[in-house]
Structures are given as C-alpha cells and as structure tokens.
C-alpha cells in the first residue's frame, strides 16, 4: 500500500520526518487544548491535519512555529529543535496560521513588502520581484495596489497564501488555506499545493474539508479534543475503516440465515421499492461456514453462498468507508463543539 502514496521523487520516509512532535501538550489553565500528540510528517508528503472545531489544530501549529510554548513535549521541524533553532527553521517555512492578517491601511503589495522586510534572511534586492511573483501565483496581481481594507475575504486569504510563498520554502504550513475561497480559488489552491509538492516541498495542511484532503493529501492525521486519534498514509487510514456489503433482495429472512452462517452479523437496512436491504461488515467470519481461517470472506464467495441458499440477489455491493465516515467514527457524531 505504501507504494501508492509516495507522490514525489524525493519520496516519503527516505530522509526521515519533516515535522516530528513527541508528547506535545498545551494547557490553557486547566483545559488541555493539545494532549500528548506524536505527529510524524514524512519528508515530501502532503499532510492533511484534520479535526473538528476546537480540536487543537491551530494550537499545535502555533507550537510548531514557535509562537506558543509547549506545556510539555518536544517539536522538531526540518530536523531541528523548535523553538530553540527557530532562526534557522522559520526562514525555510512558509505559514498561514489561523487565517490571514494584514494592515488594512496598506495595499496588498505593501503588506507583503512589510512582512518580507521583517525576515532577517530575505534579500532586499529581490524583494520587489518576489512580491510580484507571489501575487501573480495567487492571482492577485490586479489588486496588488488596492488597500487590504477593501479586499474580500477570499482575496485576503489569497494574500495570506502569497505571504507564505514569498521565498522558496521547504515546508509550508497552511491552516485552512481554502477558507473563504470561491470554487476557482479552491481549485487553484489545490493545484498550488500539488505544484509545491512536486517541487519537493512538504505541505502540512489543516482542514475540515475532507473531500479536499482526500484529493490532495498523501498522508493525514485526525485530531479529536486535543488528542491524535489516527495518522498515516491516506490509503492506510481508509483501509483501517471496515468494508461492508450491501445486499438488495426480496428474501431478507433467508439472506440473514446465510450470512449468519458465514459468521457475519447482518443488519436490516432501510427497505427500498424492489426489496429489503441487508448490510453486514466484511471480514468478521467466525461462524460454522466461515471460509478462510483468517476471518476474511471474499465478496464473490458470499454471493455464491447466497445464490446457493436460494436468495434472489437483486443488488450486491462492497462499500468502503469514506474518509468522512472514518472521521466521524473517530471524532464522534455530535455537532456541539467538544470541550
């Protein structure tokens, strides 16, 4: 499975980890916002950092960038200890943290000049060119001279991304980069992330847009109330979810019997016009007719048994959990923000 996830020539896991945290914890008073997180972001990966609102994504990013001190635990970025080696690390990192922030009374270009001048390492001689290129890259060239005060939300978001791209970076940390963007903007960001990754950069994207993460990421981690509940290559994360069969038949009773003898636990789904729906989880075979000893039941074998048993099969499918199902399974159904 690992072969399917390596997107870059530089590859994953060859030179170790671009970001590594160990037991990273942040307390605000008695609230634990980040709780013993061990992140491992492979070099060259596009890493999706998922989690519901308030699960500690931004707080983790702040600690990674040396904005906030960890209550306990360690962070290393680009192989160097943070925040001790901050001055060596940050020039190589572009970041968008919790939305863009700019001086409203300055133009977009002037804002970028200001933030670039703040960097000790950015070369003043090339500043104008680099600002122009960054604006070009996010499609803001025409609004470069406009005051940020008059920018729309999506324009500010684009400017924030441009700021992260002012210098060539080895790592990009993007906290919800597509927030407020129109469909074109979202697509552009996806393409941008892909092209950055193709150039060999590691991209760490936090998001709650699962579809987006599924489209661009090679790896992902899921946070829930400050804890890391899953991480790994995207394909493996999806694998970890259980596959289910879905059977459409008028002979529900018989089907239940057959499936039960295969060691599965059939559940009645909501009936449809042309028959009853029966679902069951694949791969828990332990019944009298269980096939392979390792507990997995091949779907085609199930259909054969059903037909043998006189079940009229009108529809049969194997459904894998989507990342969204997996996300909800790991982080809970409730809509209320967890404390």
């Amino acid at each position: 499975m690992t072969a399917a996830v390596g997107r870059n020539a530089s590859g994953t896991g060859t030179t170790g980890l671009t970001i590594e945290t160990q037991g990273l914890t942040k307390r605000f008073g008695h609230q634990v916002a980040v709780d013993g997180v061990n992140l491992a972001v492979p070099h060259g990966s596009v890493f999706g950092f998922l989690g519901p609102n308030g699960s500690g994504k931004t707080t983790t990013i702040r600690m990674m960038l040396g904005l906030a001190a960890a209550s306990s635990g360690t962070v290393s970025v680009l192989g160097l200890d943070m925040p001790n080696r901050l001055h060596e690390v940050l020039p190589r990192v572009g970041a968008l943290v919790e939305g863009p922030a700019f001086y409203p009374f300055l133009s977009g270009a002037a804002n970028l000049h200001r933030l670039d001048a703040a960097s000790r390492n950015a070369r003043p001689a090339t500043r104008r060119t680099r600002v122009g290129e960054a604006l070009e890259r996010v499609g803001l060239s025409h609004a470069a001279g406009k005051r940020v005060h008059a920018y729309s939300l999506g324009m500010k978001q684009r400017l924030g991304i441009a700021n992260a791209l002012l210098s060539p970076r080895e790592l990009l940390v993007l906290d919800e980069p597509t927030n407020g963007l129109d469909p074109q903007g979202t697509r552009e960001v996806r393409n941008l992330v892909r092209s950055l990754a193709a150039d060999g950069a590691t991209v760490f994207v936090s998001s709650h847009l699962l579809a987006e993460v599924e489209q661009i990421c090679t790896h992902a981690a899921i946070m829930s109330t400050g804890r890391l509940v899953a991480q790994g290559p995207l394909a493996e994360l999806r694998q970890a979810g259980e596959a289910r069969i879905r059977l459409l038949t008028p002979d529900a009773g018989t089907a239940f019997g057959v499936l039960a003898r295969l060691g599965m636990t059939p559940v009645a789904g909501s009936p449809e016009t042309d028959g009853a729906v029966v679902t069951a989880t694949l791969g828990t075979g332990a019944g009298p007719d269980a096939l392979a000893g390792n507990g997995s039941v091949a779907p085609e074998e199930i259909v054969a048994r059903l037909v043998e048993g006189g079940v009229r099969v009108r529809g049969f499918s194997v459904e894998r959990e989507s990342l969204e199902d997996r996300f909800v399974a790991l982080t809970g159904e409730g809509f209320d923000v967890a404390q």
């Binding site: 901050l86 940050l90 943290v97 919790e98 863009p100 922030a101 933030l115 703040a118 950015a122 700021n163």
Partner: peptide, 18 residues
Amino acid sequence: SLGTLRYLLVAPAGRVRL
C-alpha cells in the same frame, strides 16, 4: 490585535529584534 504579530514572528522577525 491585527494578527500581524504572528506573521512578523513567523517571518521570522525575531522577538528581541522586533
């Protein structure tokens, strides 16, 4: 309050220098 402090520090401006 503008939020630009985090971007200045990430630039990195350096806290003492800033």
